[in-house]
Write a protein that binds this DNA or RNA. Structure first.
Length: 644
DNA sequence: CGGACAGTTGCCGGT
DNA sequence: CACCGGCAACTGTCC
């Protein structure tokens, strides 16, 4: 047998520093090494990815490709325009591959894809090497150390991590690379099935990244451009790439006081140019920065300060603490698989009858990507929230920064997530997570899902009476309203007194500030003046409705995998007039208004006009009669309050 | 079993 | 400006 001919399959590990998998590939002392990327339709069409995150990916790929070429001018990142599952078997033959090496993925889709690829490799007689490298500790090992259960608190993660062992020391960047072999390809391209395109809203033109064959329009395996994707140009000011983030990290570590005393809750969500946190998350997501490299470098600064008897911060609020949370969410995802991303059939996720619940495919038990409209008004609320037109300047500034820049501060995420779910609109966290998935350049499924569950008090966190105010919270961090003025420019000249509640400004003040506060966000200009919308609801009223709804749902005490949730009988545990789509005795899985019964008859439930009717459905109690009693009394109180 | 206590980051009004 | 308790009160873990 000759020397190894290695295919190194880059995925979200777009770096050369500290890569256990890449090191394993080099340790084979290969005759040839092909660094490749498979352009996957799962990313192009079937995930929510807006232009900003696509651009960030493209930046990271181009940067890595240049770094590879610096080490070996015959080599580069070869981007092959076909999903791995169909492409790799052909490539094994065409390039006479002996070894396939890649970094381990633990998300549900990644595992499924990789299992298929490994099966194909086995058939082709190709040896596969997989190394964990995406997290501080191998997520599967963490789960094992946590008795096979998802890590639901930072304490559990730390205990499990300690059992797994020390966080591996970073691996040096290679100094040279083997040549790639012959790269001419005489194989048919299997064009992926576009199916429904989830990113249509972001495209001006036709998606054409597969149109010119496996090697692309210039036949050079180049990274596709946004134009090829038919996408509108990116608007983010943040630039991807390993070399970019390693420079950033140098600057960060040089400021040993910032690095050593970092406390997340003390950093301002309203800070911009520069932001108050270090913005490494998108680089961690694409693997342009190794979390272990980051961890050990920060720890070195902290330990030096400790020796010098200077103050230091500790997990969970410190910088290393942030990386621990990331590992916690990865480990939870690793064991819960697809169900982690949805309420339905999720053992650790509380069932709350949110508005706009996900549609569920009863056969696969998975959410479909669509949602049920239980109330048309809530669709408007969701749209206004997603586009920064709620009439709450603090919320709107955050959502507009998210849409234009693709990154917002962690506490800003808290604020808008609480507002959409348990502390405002009572809309499903799954709707919010989808919007973040589209818009964030640092979207990491595990962290995004985990944080939405946290903020909506469906998992990880439960103190729902700690509710973010869309007025007070912004004011606390930015009394002058400079953040709002930056991202909601129509309010630029609004007096400080009204900046968080412009609808309270007298007409004269509005005119002086050059803005009318009116309407629902449809109108942007009137009589030559800008128009900013009125608040989409009265916040104190909605806050009370949400609090009562949460108390009631907690008292009912169902989880996503409860038989009553799975078969739709959960409605019997909720009064018809409880907040959310709770009318009737039986609803579909996850809160659907219509439901195919076991006998095949479709039952349609109460229309929204019937909402508020005092009649109870008389269904059987939830878990205990006592809990049911408690929930009822709470609800009756809510209705008395509302009636006033 | 029961009680104490911790849990990454609420708000408000007081000292 | 920092810190405290009241608000009305959650869960999960630990002893």
């Amino acid at each position: 047998m000759g020397k190894p001919r290695v295919l190194y399959w880059f995925r979200t590990d777009l770096r050369l520093h500290d890569s256990p998998a890449f090191k394993a590939a080099l340790d084979l002392k290969p005759e040839v090494l092909y660094p490749i990327w498979c352009w996957d339709s799962h990313y192009v069409y079937h995930s929510r990815v807006g232009p900003n995150r696509f651009q960030f990916l493209i930046d990271c790929q181009n940067d890595l490709s240049q770094s590879i070429t610096k080490l070996n001018k015959k080599s580069k990142l070869f981007v092959l325009r076909e999903p791995a599952v169909t492409l790799l078997p052909k490539l094994f033959k065409a390039w006479k591959i002996s070894h396939l090496v890649f970094e381990k993925d633990t998300d549900a889709y990644g595992r499924q894809r990789d299992a298929q690829v490994m099966e194909q490799a086995k058939k082709a007689g190709v040896e596969v090497i997989v190394k964990s490298g995406r997290t501080l500790w191998d997520s599967d090992e963490v789960v094992k150390a946590n008795n096979g259960k998802p890590t639901m608190s930072i304490g559990q993660l730390q205990a499990a991590g300690a059992k797994v062992g020390d966080v591996a020391a970073p691996i040096d960047t290679p100094k040279s690379l083997p040549d790639p072999g012959e790269t001419s390809l005489d194989i048919e391209q299997t064009k992926p099935n576009a199916g429904s395109d989830m990113n249509e809203q972001f495209r001006d033109g036709e998606e054409s990244s597969y149109a010119s064959g496996i090697a692309g329009p210039k036949n050079d395996f180049a990274v596709p451009s946004l134009e090829e994707l038919g996408m509108k140009p990116a608007t983010t000011p943040h630039k991807g790439g390993e070399s970019v983030v390693l420079d950033m990290l140098d600057g960060l570590l040089a400021d040993e006081e910032y690095t050593g005393t970092f406390e997340k809750p003390k950093t301002s969500p309203a800070a911009f140019e520069p932001q108050s946190t270090c913005l490494t998350s998108p680089y961690l997501h694409f693997g342009a920065l190794s979390c272990r490299h980051f961890y050990h470098n920060v720890l070195r600064v902290v330990e030096e300060r400790r020796k010098a008897k200077k103050p230091v911060s500790e997990p969970p609020t410190s910088l290393t603490g942030q990386l621990l949370f990331r590992d916690m969410y990865f480990a939870a995802q690793a064991v819960l698989s697809y169900s982690f991303g949805q309420t339905y059939n999720n053992s650790h996720c509380r069932f709350i009858p949110w508005h706009l619940p996900s549609k569920v495919d009863v056969n696969t038990q998975l959410i479909t990507g669509g949602y049920e409209v239980d109330d048309e008004e809530k669709v408007k609320w969701l749209e206004r929230w997603a586009h920064g037109k709620t009439g709450f300047p603090w919320i709107d500034a955050i959502m507009r920064q998210l849409r234009s820049e693709g990154w917002i501060h962690h506490l800003a995420r808290h604020s808008v997530a609480c507002f959409l779910t348990r502390g405002g609109a009572y809309i499903s966290w799954e709707r919010g997570a989808e919007v973040f998935e589209e818009l964030l350049i640092d979207h990491e499924a595990a962290c995004n899902i985990g944080n939405w569950q946290w903020l909506s008090c469906t998992a990880f966190f439960s103190q729902f009476y700690r509710c973010y105010s869309p007025i007070a919270f912004g004011k606390k961090w930015d009394p002058e309203g400079n953040y709002v003025r930056k991202f909601v420019p129509e309010l630029e000249n609004m007096p400080k007194k009204y900046i968080y509640e412009p609808h309270k400004a007298p007409i004269q003040d509005q005119k002086k500030a050059g803005v009318f506060v009116a309407g629902d966000g449809q109108e942007t200009e009137k009589d030559g003046l800008a128009v900013y919308p009125k608040p989409m609801f009265d916040f104190p009223t909605q806050r009370d409705i949400c609090l009562d709804g949460m108390k009631n749902a907690y008292a009912v005490g169902l989880y996503g995998n409860d038989p009553k949730v799975l078969d739709g009988t959960w409605k019997q545990a909720f009064a018809d007039n409880a907040e959310g789509p709770t009318e009737g005795k039986q609803g579909g899985p996850g809160g659907m208004m219509t439901f195919e019964d076991a006998d095949g008859t479709e039952e349609t439930h109460a229309s929204p006009q019937k909402r508020g009717a005092k009649k109870q459905d008389g269904g059987s109690p939830a878990k205990t009669g006592e809990k049911r009693e408690r929930s009822q009394s709470t609800l009756d109180g809510a209705f008395k309050k509302k009636a006033k």
